[in-house]
C-alpha cells in the first residue's frame, strides 16, 4: 500500500466561456517517506493537482479519477470524513510568505488551531506543542505571540512549515514554499524542510517551477505541461539529462556556473504555455518544440517507460530519434 496513489485524475473548471481542463489524466504514487517534486510553468495544473488531494478546489471544479490516501478513497468520502483527513493525515504548506497566514491572529494560535480541532488535548499541551514545533523549524518559542506582519518572509514560511507538522501528518504537500523568498532565505527554508523530512520520515510532494530546487530536495521529479505529466524520473537525471524537450528547456533555464558553453547556448523557451481551455492538437507542446515533426501535431502522446525508472511522453524520444 502506497501512501498516496493518484489514478487518472482529471480536474475541469466550469467557466463562463466553456470548460477549462486544468489537470488531464495524471497518475502518481508517493511512498511513505519519499519525496516527489512536481515541476512546471504557472498554469500547468500543478497547484490544482495539490489542492485536489484534500478536495480544496472551488465548487466550479469537477474532479474525476481516484485519489487514495493510505488506501482510503478521498473522492468518495463525505465532507465530514474529508475534514477529519485534512491536516491530520495530509497537510499543505502554502506560500506563507505572502498571505497564507491570518493577519489578525497570533501565529501560535494559528499553529495550534489544527491540534485543537483534531485532537482532544488540553490547552496547556497545545501551547507546549506549539513551542516545540517553532523550535523544530528554528524559531524561538516566544515567537508564538507574534503576529504575521511582525515576522520576515522566511520566518513566516517557517511558521507555515511548523503549522503543517502540527498534527504529525504522513504526507505534506508543499505548494511553492520558497517562491517569494530571496535566495539566501530560500536555502534556509529548504534546509529546514529537508531536515524535517529526514527526521520525521513523512512523505512530501514538493511543487515548484524551479527544477534546480527540486533536484536538490526530492527523490523523484515529475514534470507537468498543460495538465499532464510529460516526464518522470529520479530527480538528478531529469535535471542533468532530461529526455523530454520541455524538461530540457526547464533545466536549461537555470544557469550553470563555470560552464562557458552554457553562456552562449540558447536558453529559455519561446512562446507562452497554452491556455488550458484551448489546447493544441496532438502533443500539446508541439507549437513551442524545436524538435517537433508533422506527426506531433496529430498524434496524442502518452508516458512511455524508458528504463531506469524514467518515463517520458514524447514521440521522438520513444522512437529513439533523439
Amino acid at each position: 500500500m502506497s501512501l498516496l496513489e493518484i489514478q487518472d485524475l482529471q480536474v475541469t473548471y466550469r467557466g463562463t466561456q466553456g470548460d477549462v481542463p486544468a489537470v488531464r489524466g495524471v497518475d502518481l504514487v508517493v511512498e511513505a517517506g519519499q519525496t516527489l517534486g512536481i515541476a512546471g510553468e504557472s498554469g500547468c495544473g500543478k497547484s490544482t493537482l495539490a489542492t485536489a488531494v484534500l478536495r480544496l478546489l472551488p465548487r466550479s471544479a469537477t474532479v474525476t479519477g481516484q485519489i487514495r490516501l493510505e488506501d482510503q478513497d478521498i473522492l468518495a468520502m463525505t465532507w465530514g470524513q474529508v475534514r477529519a483527513v485534512r491536516w491530520a493525515k495530509a497537510a499543505i504548506v502554502f506560500q506563507g510568505a505572502m498571505h497564507g497566514l491570518n493577519p489578525v491572529r497570533r501565529v501560535g494560535e494559528q499553529i495550534g488551531e489544527p491540534i485543537r480541532i483534531h485532537e482532544n488535548v488540553e490547552s496547556r499541551e497545545v501551547s507546549s506543542r506549539v513551542n516545540g514545533l517553532l523550535e523544530q523549524v528554528g524559531l524561538p518559542a516566544a515567537r508564538a505571540r507574534a503576529y504575521p506582519h511582525q515576522l520576515s518572509g522566511g520566518q513566516r514560511q517557517r511558521v507555515m512549515i511548523a503549522m503543517a507538522l502540527a498534527c504529525r501528518p504522513q504526507l505534506i504537500i508543499a505548494d511553492e514554499p520558497t517562491t517569494a523568498l530571496d535566495v539566501m532565505v530560500q536555502a534556509q527554508v529548504l534546509k529546514v524542510l529537508k531536515d524535517l523530512i529526514n527526521e520525521t520520515g513523512v512523505g512530501l510532494i514538493f511543487i515548484s517551477h524551479d527544477l534546480s530546487v527540486l533536484a536538490e530536495t526530492c527523490d523523484r521529479v515529475a514534470v507537468m505541461y498543460a495538465g499532464r505529466m510529460v516526464e518522470t524520473g529520479p530527480s538528478q537525471t531529469i535535471f542533468t539529462d532530461p529526455l523530454h524537450p520541455y524538461s530540457a528547456a526547464l533545466a536549461g533555464a537555470f544557469p550553470r556556473i563555470g560552464d562557458p558553453a552554457f553562456r552562449y547556448a540558447p536558453a529559455g523557451l519561446p512562446g507562452d504555455p497554452p491556455f488550458p481551455g484551448d489546447l493544441p492538437s496532438g502533443c500539446t507542446f508541439h507549437p513551442r518544440c524545436a524538435r517537433a515533426i508533422d506527426v506531433c501535431q496529430t498524434s496524442d502522446v502518452e508516458l512511455v517507460p524508458l528504463g531506469l525508472g524514467r518515463m517520458a511522453a514524447c514521440l521522438r524520444v520513444s522512437e529513439g530519434v533523439l
Partner: peptide
C-alpha cells in the same frame, strides 16, 4: 489564501 489554509486544516 489564509482562508484556504483554514479550510485545509479541517
Amino acid at each position: 489564501d489564509y482562508l484556504t489554509t483554514a479550510r485545509a486544516k479541517g
